[in-house]
């Protein structure tokens, strides 16, 4: 009698649990993401945030408007996009006149490149590698992931709706000075190598550049901002080297003369 009294509610409890999971399973068959246009709204929010962050950065930096510089960098991006099937219109590239070696991505496909990154690099493939790395961060949605983790979704949404000036300032600082998780960095590095390979560009200069940064890291050069946003350079250089296939034939994104002209124009800015 006692066991019968316990058996019945036990079976009923199992039924309740099953019914909940069944309702959950059935509701999961409906595509709510499409129905509520969640992805579209996310893209809209990201675009708004990107514009706000770019406005905030632009107010304290000098944007380069030199056609030769802009067109040369644009050619590099075009080559990468073309060979990797990426939509070039998605990326908004901004070059800032700043001697720091830095490049970073903002929400909404904005890529910020400091002129210091170009002037301090003798090999254009290293610069292309860094650009590929930033393109990868955007393509893999790392920027929003990082912002949500550091600031929080609710704060970002309030910022996107225009009521969070402080959040924008904080976000700009995070995006230009704080590091991504190590796993996200590796993911972006590997994606960058894939982009470079598809464009027949040698990834080795990117690895060499990271080795160089690793050496400079110890010297604590202030101009090396890219280290603070992209740490553990030596380890990263090593796994890039491991991915390199020496048998491949390589080319560069832009001609040597265009690269030299680009460097010269930047030097003239200084």
């Amino acid at each position: 009698m006692q066991s019968q009294q316990i058996k019945k509610p036990f079976l009923q409890s199992v039924l309740i649990v099953i019914s909940f999971f069944l309702v959950w399973f059935l509701l999961n068959q409906i595509s709510w993401m499409k129905l509520f246009e969640i992805k579209k709204n996310e893209i809209r929010t990201e675009d708004k945030l990107g514009k706000l962050y770019w406005k905030s950065i632009k107010s304290s930096e000098i944007e380069v408007s030199n056609k030769i510089i802009l067109n040369s960098v644009d050619s590099i991006i075009e080559k990468i996009c073309e060979t990797n099937g990426l939509n070039k219109d998605k990326f908004k590239v901004h070059i800032l006149h700043n001697s720091q070696i830095n490049a970073f991505a903002l929400p909404g496909g904005h890529i910020i490149i400091y002129t210091g990154l170009i002037t301090h690099n003798d090999n254009q493939d290293a610069v292309t590698g860094v650009i590929c790395h930033e393109l990868a961060h955007i393509e893999l949605n790392h920027v929003m992931k990082k912002l949500v983790k550091e600031i929080g979704l609710s704060a970002l949404l309030s910022a996107a709706s225009g009521s969070g000036g402080e959040v924008i300032k904080k976000g700009s600082k995070i995006l230009s000075s704080l590091a991504f998780d190590r796993s996200l960095e590796k993911e972006a590095d590997l994606k960058a190598i894939e982009y470079l390979r598809n464009a027949s560009i040698n990834p080795e200069p990117l690895a060499n550049f990271l080795y160089l940064l690793a050496g400079e890291e110890r010297g604590l050069l202030e101009s090396l901002s890219w280290i603070s946003t992209h740490p553990v350079s030596k380890e990263r250089a090593e796994y890039i080297i491991a991915e390199i296939n020496n048998a491949e034939e390589y080319t560069s994104a832009i001609s040597n003369s265009t690269w030299q002209a680009l460097k010269m124009e930047i030097q003239e800015l200084d």
């Binding site: 909940f20 509701l27 999961n28 409906i30």
Partner: peptide, 9 residues
């Protein structure tokens, strides 16, 4: 989608 379905359930 799983999250939305869970919240609705």
């Amino acid at each position: 989608n799983k999250y939305i379905a869970f919240i609705l359930a």
